[in-house]
């Protein structure tokens, strides 16, 4: 028997892969079309490639300072803020399935969320507590950055982006406050928008545009809803992307100057 008669099972007579060969290699090709690196990296080079090749990790630097990874450096406050925001987006989208932003429906829908929707109380409370937590965490994150001097050059721009993110967080909190449409929400927005009208020059106009009229009513509820579920989250998400990207471009987390 000569060697050329031996046929590898998954090749055809010409030695090409053929149907069975293609089928055999299909899982591997599908895997590699999705993942650019091996499942478990074997060395440092592959490890850094795995980080760079993964969409969810690509914001990370391939190399970081060891001390910036220690928990006590940052207390994890930035990422915790992000996690609360992710929770708020997910629970918020689920709440949108049942909430209707009209004066006739809003309050009843809020009560239904608590009484008639499967896991509704949990969802609403998760959304509410995460919102409170996010305001606190973002504030603490700002404090940490300031007290460790991480707002100084070359990170001044990212510090300002962070300030805007903090203001957007407060605005999201404020716009969400009106949506239950109960007495607390209503009068809080009456008072809050009146405070806005004390702003010099543009104050009264600002209140009028914010409320869509002179008083807190159906227009105000609709406007706050659109701001809360569409405008502000989109702006916030975009700026979060910019914020994280700048952390990398500014050389990772702040650290003491090399001696």
């Amino acid at each position: 028997m000569s060697m050329d008669k031996v046929q590898i099972p998954w090749t055809d007579s010409d030695g090409k892969p053929g149907f069975w060969g293609a089928l055999h290699s299909l899982p591997r090709r599908v895997y590699h079309s999705v993942f650019r690196s091996r499942p478990i990296p074997a060395n440092d080079l592959e490890r850094s490639q795995a980080v760079a090749a993964n969409f969810f990790f690509h914001l990370h630097s391939a190399k970081v300072q060891e001390r910036t990874l220690r928990f006590k450096t940052t207390l994890g406050l930035g990422l915790l803020s992000l996690y609360t925001f992710v929770i708020l987006v997910v629970t918020g989208i689920l709440l949108m399935f049942y909430y209707v932003p009209t004066p006739v429906e809003a309050y009843d829908r809020m009560l239904d969320l608590r009484g008639a929707v499967f896991f509704g109380t949990f969802l609403r409370n998760l959304h509410r507590w995460s919102a409170h937590a996010m305001v606190g965490l973002v504030f603490l994150h700002l404090m940490r950055v300031f007290l460790t001097g991480a707002h100084k050059a070359p990170r001044e721009f990212n510090w300002m982006v962070g300030i805007v993110l903090f203001l957007l967080t407060l605005l999201l909190s404020f716009t969400g406050y009106l949506l239950p449409w109960d007495q607390l929400a209503f009068w809080a927005i009456v008072v809050g928008t009146s405070i806005a009208s004390y702003a010099p020059v543009v104050g009264d106009e600002l209140r009028y545009v914010l409320l869509g009229g002179d008083s807190v009513g159906a227009e105000a509820l609709l406007r706050f809803y659109v701001l809360h579920v569409a405008v502000l989250p989109v702006v916030l998400t975009t700026l979060i992307g910019l914020h994280f990207w700048r952390i990398r471009k500014d050389g990772g987390l702040a650290k003491p100057r090399e001696k």
Partner: peptide
Amino acid sequence: NLIFLRPRVTYGPPS
């Protein structure tokens, strides 16, 4: 957009 956001007609109680 600013002009757009300033309502020409309001739906609140009449003045």
